[in-house]
């Protein structure tokens, strides 16, 4: 329960960055934190006390493994996170080139 809650707190820190920070890079950092929080949460779900990593080392080994599915999912999620972060940052770079600022409040040509 407590580790889960720590993930939720990390999630909230990410939300905090996205919501209150005005710097585009800070917002991207917020996203990374969000992704870590969710990935971590996923990985913790699969944890089984006193179990081993799901790798057979010899055939006669006992089958007390942690849940392999969340690990597989998190593997996908990590890569997806990398993709979105890269895209977000590339847009941020281009915005800096065009607007000469990273302040999100200055970037408001589209309104109404």
């Amino acid at each position: 329960m407590v580790p889960y809650l720590c993930c939720i707190i990390l999630f909230l820190i990410g939300i905090y960055a996205i919501l209150t920070k005005r710097n585009l890079i800070k917002i991207a950092i917020g996203f990374c934190l969000l992704e870590y929080a969710v990935n971590l949460f996923f990985a913790l779900i699969g944890y089984k006390k006193d179990a081993l990593a799901p790798i057979y080392t010899n055939v006669s080994q006992s089958k007390n493994f942690v849940d392999p599915i969340p690990q597989a999912l998190v593997l996908t999620a990590i890569v997806i996170g990398l993709g979105t972060t890269a895209l977000l940052l590339s847009v941020a770079v281009r915005i800096y080139e065009k607007y000469k600022t990273l302040d999100i409040k200055e970037i408001k040509r589209l309104k109404e």
Binding site: I15, L19, I104, K105, K108, K111, E112
Partner: peptide, 17 residues
């Protein structure tokens, strides 16, 4: 209402949250 569409991202996020 159009004032709400202020162009500032954090305003949008405030409403969304």
């Amino acid at each position: 209402l159009r004032k709400f569409q202020s162009g500032i991202l954090s305003d949008y996020l405030v409403v969304i949250f």
